[in-house]
């Protein structure tokens, strides 16, 4: 049996992801037998220290990071396909910042920091921002470069709201709130894993359902209309779904930057396509955050470094490289 290129790319990336997850579970400051760690990570009780260290500390964090990576990549793929621009992603377009501002506002107003409580606010913030961006970037259809510049502007508005709330928050909450704005996978619990899994289970099938139509749309609006796809409606649906995924991701870990930008790009390059490659992108996102989370946890151990720093360290130079080549920017 011969595999198609997207399939084996997805399998390769999945292998990397599984390796990173396994390493994150079995390796750490406290050495433990592999079998104990793996059993605890799967939710079994072993009556060894692994029950706490792996079962309560390492596993939830690693799983949350990995699932959030998948959500972010899903959001990035959808938005890049709609904007027809490899630079579009929820964090460039300001969607993530909108989600973060709404979530911090909800922490500030209600004092509740659980992800379940933050999720509605973050999703609402993400949807509202993306509606604003589409409103500004719209003129006889979506104008990609306009969309991006409008998004950067609206992102600034949202982050200034976050910044204000961070100065208004009581001193003892400030470090936690600050950490939250860079994106952190520290101290995640099983509740996070459950929400993340539910989010993935809802958004990714919907995205798969949209993918086929989006692929048709990439051949041009006229052709797509001829094939029974309604371009405007489809684009709006894709943006809304992308915002939903980004908002859920932000509610779980705070805004982890650049994953949504980089993961689809890695997938596209490996698959060698200019178009949408949803499954490989999602797996790439999961692999990326799994690796970044491991690095954030162990590289400067015992000091914990926020995962957002690592993804920014990978993603920002990549974005600069993309800009340097300046492809996809000639409007």
């Amino acid at each position: 049996m011969t595999l198609t290129r997207p399939t084996w790319v997805a399998l390769l990336l999945a292998t990397i992801m599984l390796a990173a997850v396994t390493l994150a579970i079995t390796y750490g400051q406290t050495a433990m037998p592999w079998s104990d760690s793996l059993q605890s990570a799967a939710g079994f009780t072993t009556n060894t220290p692994a029950d706490f260290i792996v079962g309560q500390l390492r596993a939830p964090r690693t799983y949350t990071a990995t699932l959030v990576g998948a959500l972010l990549a899903c959001s990035g793929v959808l938005l890049q396909s709609v904007a027809r621009n490899p630079l579009a992603s929820p964090d460039i377009l300001g969607v993530t910042q909108g989600a973060a501002a709404a979530a911090v506002a909800s922490i500030w107003a209600f004092g509740n920091t659980s992800s379940l409580a933050l999720a509605p606010a973050a999703v609402a913030g993400a949807l509202l921002t993306s509606a604003l961006i589409v409103g500004v970037g719209w003129s006889r259809g979506i104008q990609p470069m306009r969309l991006i510049v409008a998004g950067i502007g609206i992102g600034f508005v949202a982050s200034s709201i976050t910044t204000y709330l961070l100065t208004a928050i009581p001193e003892h909450l400030a470090p936690q709130a600050y950490l939250w704005t860079i994106g952190s996978t520290n101290a995640r619990v099983w509740e996070h894993v459950a929400i993340a899994a539910a989010a993935v289970a809802v958004t990714i099938p919907l995205a798969l359902w949209l993918e086929r139509r989006l692929r048709v749309l990439e051949m041009g609006d006229d052709l797509a209309s001829g094939l029974g796809v309604r371009p405007v409606r489809l684009r709006l649906a894709a943006i809304a779904l992308g915002a939903l995924a980004a908002g859920l991701a932000a509610a779980l870990t705070g805004p982890i930057g650049f994953v949504a930008l980089v993961a689809p790009a890695i997938a596209r390059r490996l698959v060698r396509t200019e178009g949408i490659a949803l499954v490989p992108s999602i797996v790439a996102g999961a692999a990326l955050t799994a690796v970044a989370d491991l690095l954030a946890r162990e590289l400067f151990s015992p000091t914990q470094v926020p995962i957002g720093l690592f993804t920014a360290a990978i993603g920002a130079p990549y974005l600069l490289y993309l800009l340097h080549r300046a492809r996809g920017l000639r409007s």
């Binding site: 604003l132 500004v136 970037g137 003129s139 006889r140 259809g141 979506i142 104008q143 470069m145 306009r146 969309l147 991006i148 510049v149 409008a150 950067i152 502007g153 609206i154 992102g155 600034f156 508005v157 949202a158 982050s159 200034s160 709201i161 910044t163 204000y164 100065t167 208004a168 609006d221 409007s331």
Partner: peptide, 29 residues
């Protein structure tokens, strides 16, 4: 209390940037 000046300027400036984006030449899709 107070809102830091950087917050206010970013709010105004973000709106301005969005407005400038609105003025960018539209290209046919």
């Amino acid at each position: 209390g107070e809102i830091s000046v950087g917050v206010t300027t970013a709010l105004l400036g973000g709106v301005l940037l969005a407005a400038l984006a609105r003025r960018m030449r539209a290209v046919a899709p």
